[in-house]
């Protein structure tokens, strides 16, 4: 299996304090990878560098064999990366339909019919088809999260980065989310930052654990679950879910 995303020595510090330090990371195609770690472990900083919201202090990022370290975020999105925000960041005054259409339009251009079909499909897959005409800002928090995911889907990315997608979702919605991600596995590669351990255990092919900005461990969900080092890192904060 070929590697779609690779980082070498990726580091970022904020006013001298390292948030992410010398991370070497390889993500093979069509894998679902979970990125976990205690709060403040540098997960969001790490994926922010991947998508280009944050420039790294040093190190390199390679996407599909191409060095993207210096590319601005829109260019990386153009190459097939997509990112959904941890804190929902939908276009609050626009309808759900327009939100997803904006996501689909960059790829499909002026082909109105294709955009229309894509929007309908993405909204249906996350279960928001009947909310298409609603203004996004009026949706509940959980629905806004689902809309974020629909916007990610409509881009048909080759790598989809989901930053805490299940936060604030109800149990039934989480079950739907799991089914959706499993179905996506055939189409794309997924990097998932997740706190909910049941989601990680059920979905992930492999798990990477970040702690203090460094890779603490990497392996199958079962192996990680059993790892003493990981337990120690989490036990420091007292709960399994941290």
């Amino acid at each position: 299996m070929s590697v779609i995303l690779q980082t070498r020595g990726l580091s970022r510090s904020f006013s001298g304090l390292p948030a992410v330090h010398e991370v070497d990371f390889d993500l093979p195609q069509h894998e679902i990878r979970a990125l976990i770690g205690p709060n403040g472990a540098g997960k969001t900083t790490f994926v922010s560098m991947l998508i280009g919201r944050l420039p790294p202090s040093s190190g390199s990022i390679t996407f599909e064999g191409r060095d993207v370290t210096a590319l601005p975020a829109p260019k990386r999105v153009g190459l097939g990366m997509a990112y959904t925000f941890q804190i929902t960041s939908v276009f609050g005054k626009l309808t759900c339909h327009e939100n997803v259409a904006l996501a689909a339009m960059r790829r499909l251009g002026g082909d109105a019919k294709a955009v229309e079909a894509e929007v309908r499909e993405a909204l249906t897959r996350v279960g928001l088809a009947d909310r298409a005409a609603d203004v996004a800002g009026d949706l509940s928090y959980g629905h806004q999260r689902l809309l974020e995911i629909a916007m990610g889907l409509a881009q048909r990315p080759r790598l989809l980065i989901l930053d805490e997608p299940t936060q604030g979702l109800a149990e039934s919605e989480i079950a739907d989310f799991k089914a959706l991600i499993r179905a996506l596995k055939a189409e794309t590669t997924i990097l998932l930052i997740e706190h909910n351990m049941s989601v990680v255990m059920e979905l992930a092919d492999r798990v990477t654990v970040l702690n203090f900005g460094e890779v603490l461990a990497e392996g199958t969900p079962q192996g990680i679950h059993a790892s003493r080092a990981v337990q120690a890192a989490y036990l420091g904060t007292g709960t399994e879910e941290a």
């Binding site: 829109p74 260019k75 999105v77 925000f85 960041s89 609050g92 327009e98 904006l102 251009g109 881009q155």
Partner: peptide, 24 residues
């Protein structure tokens, strides 16, 4: 047209629009 719709997207949330792949 989609250009006009991207204008509105930038007005509403520039960072989100950039991360949908639009060069702000």
């Amino acid at each position: 047209h989609r250009w006009g719709r991207v204008f509105v997207a930038l007005r509403e949330n520039e960072e989100r629009a950039s991360l949908l792949g639009y060069d702000a």
